[in-house]
Design a binder for these strands. Structure first.
Lengths: 158, 158
DNA sequence: TATTGTTATACTCTATAACTATA
DNA sequence: TATAGTTATAGAGTATAACAATA
């Protein structure tokens, strides 16, 4: 018999670990991709003083004038309490405004200001550059496949 | 001419907003899928008092005995400072332990305890049930495609 | 009773910087 | 000079509960 086998155990290279159930889990891979993109996304919108949340809400409001905070909440699948804070900030920066709704004194109708529209256009362009930077090695079909599969994650009812 | 057109503008259904550039962005779809899965993941590991981070580190240590904290850090693409805290917690719960490394007095060799191995097996089973629950409508090929595409997000060098 | 918006709090996770002790 | 580990702090993002005003 020869000495200790060098085949049985895969070489343990420091910093090159590839063993673990993690890497076979869909959830973990989603997390890794999210963190990776999020890092660049933040750097991208940093100079515009926008975060993921403020960008998302601004995007929804720009595309859906007169939308209520509740509807924004539902569209983004976040919490009402979070929406309030984000709308506060965007309103404070004159990017969107709250209008009274004639029919319902509880609700606000949100609307992007002219400044908000301009600002959003700039931000969106930066985000598109960001996506191009990160996903440059993926063609349109592959990106669409990825999006479709990701959306199915949220729709248990097939 | 009839009254105000009902065709020109898509109906704005409160809570059914589907307009916005967001939904065409890969990054946003990754985020949504991540949040959705993360919510269920947390609920899944709540009774075992494990978080995503503690589960991940435990998984790496179980699969790579004698691994250093630096190598864990690199394997998970997190920060050294985060690793310390997580290892502290796992060690405090007797799930892993820090051993002195003969050759390098700076480094620790991490190893899962027997209790840690048992505990991890239980946790992994719960995580697999979680993935099955969320991804039940996706077959093996689709899951693998999703994982492959997600991993390409992190590898700009194609 | 239910819904809209609000406030406050806590927790998870990440980012950053400064520090020590070794190498 | 670089690396392994540590500590502290701040920030983004989310979750939760309780509340007032209105429907």
């Amino acid at each position: 018999m020869p000495g200790p086998s060098r085949i049985k155990e895969p070489k343990k290279e420091i910093g090159r670990v590839s063993q673990s159930d993690l890497f076979g889990l869909v959830g973990y891979n989603i997390k890794r991709a999210y963190m990776y993109m999020h890092r660049d996304f933040r750097a991208t919108l940093d100079e515009l003083q926008l975060t993921q949340r403020t960008f998302s809400v601004l995007s929804i409001v720009v595309a859906n004038p007169e939308i209520s905070q509740s509807a924004v909440t539902a569209a983004l699948a976040i919490e009402r309490s979070g929406t309030v804070v984000i709308v506060d900030e965007l309103e404070g920066r004159d990017l969107i405004l709250r209008e009274k709704v004639p029919g319902d004194r509880r609700a606000y109708a949100l609307r992007a200001t002219l400044k908000g529209h301009d600002f959003y256009a700039k931000a969106l362009a930066a985000v598109h550059r960001h996506e191009e930077r990160i996903l440059g090695n993926m063609n349109s079909d592959e990106r669409q496949t990825l999006i479709t599969l990701l959306q199915r994650v949220q729709n248990e009812e097939d």
